[in-house]
Simulated assay, not measured.
Amino acid sequence: MNNQILSDKNLQIRETIPSLTIVVPCYNEAEAFIYCVQALKAIITDLVSRQKIQQNSHILFVDDGSKDNTWLQITEAAKQSHYVQGLKLSRNRGHQTALIAGLSVVETDICISIDADLQDDTKCIEQMVDKYMLGNEIVYGVRNNRSSDSFFKRNTANIFYGSMSAMGVNQIENHADYRLLSKRALAALLEFKEQNLYIRGLIPLLGFNSDKVFYTREERVAGESKYPLKKMLGVAIEGVTSLTVTPLRLICALGFLTCFFSFLAIIYILIAKFTGQVIEGWSSVIISIFFLSGVQLLSLGVIGEYIGKIYMETKRRPKFFIDEKTNIKLGHWE
């Protein structure tokens, strides 16, 4: 499995203390928010006090159209601390779009994205900053232990990463959206304008020097998972159709094999007819019809998924609209 994209070329140790933005997408995270903001404020305060990051570093919470009081808690936290900023989208647009919305207003030297459930180890933030100072533009947070996940989730994740790799998608295994991006890497990421976002698959395409930090995935600090099976399947389909055309090639190969075996079946039928060994019956015919119909419908479904992606891309609609903000001045965004 070729997921090794790390490079030690042209690494130059940085001497200037960076400013940091921690971007946190939130959707109905009212129960987890208080724990999240406390943990991240403690990290920011500690790193500032030890002069690892600049005083203007902060946390940016992006409310992805929550239906609970998540935004109210964000605004209250922003009033109490200059380290907290908030951005509210006009409606729910999904985790990846919310993350891009937050990243698009970042103006600090580096940014780190992390989920509000605190399943990702916040202690890795300092390690990420250290690896940035060594000259890396991207630092991936990689889970080396998923014991907190259910048996089903662990195994489906392994199948997903294996399948994506087999189809030629170069992504970091067991890495979600916990990562550090330098200003240079972030600017490159924002050059990708597609509507169908699969950020964890786009980052490796940037090609900048990168490294990894490893951590053990923990249980959610509070609340329920925002990624049930339906959403996980949606992310998987998004990743496949956004980054590879292998399914279309598989359809072509399947069509070729079907034609090949059909040709052999025709030869067999002709031989049977001329030798007088024809067996009358409709079962074989019905089975063949159902099989070929299933192949055709499956193929049309995959092709339709790609056509739907093309349709949405050609519209070039805005990815999101910002409804409210707190403690921040909006820079560039779309």
Rank of each mutant, 00 (worst) to 15 (best):
Q85C: 15
Q119L: 13
S283Q: 15
G308H: 13
L206R: 09
S49C: 01
L197V: 11
E107V: 09
E191H: 11
K67F: 03
Q171N: 14
V24I: 10
Q296M: 15
I267A: 13
M312A: 02
Y268K: 15
S284I: 11
N155F: 05
D121E: 11
C36Y: 00
Q296R: 07
N3F: 11
K123C: 14
L202N: 00
T16A: 09
I203Y: 01
L11C: 07
G331Y: 01
L229W: 04
V139N: 00
E76L: 02
N3L: 12
S148W: 06
I289E: 12
N92V: 11
E218N: 15
C26V: 07
F256G: 02
L202K: 10
L190G: 02
I112R: 03
A185E: 08
Q127C: 08
Q12R: 09
L297F: 14
I138N: 04
K309F: 02
D130V: 06
L300T: 08
L197D: 00
I125K: 06
F160G: 03
A265T: 07
N144Q: 11
C36K: 05
T16G: 00
L190Q: 09
T122Y: 12
Q127L: 13
E224K: 13
N56V: 07
L47Y: 01
C26W: 01
N145Y: 08
I328A: 05
D63K: 05
A188R: 11
C111D: 06
C26Y: 00
T75W: 03
L189T: 06
E29T: 04
T45G: 13
N144G: 05
N144A: 07
M128K: 05
S283M: 13
L264T: 09
S57W: 03
P204V: 02
E126N: 14
C252W: 05
F321N: 13
F290E: 04
F291I: 08
S7V: 00
N196R: 10
D68K: 10
N174A: 04
I59Q: 03
K153Y: 07
I203D: 01
R317W: 03
F320S: 10
V84E: 05
Y27H: 01
Y83L: 12
I44V: 15
G276M: 08
E126R: 14
P18C: 05
D120H: 12
W282F: 15
G331Q: 08
K193R: 13
T97I: 15
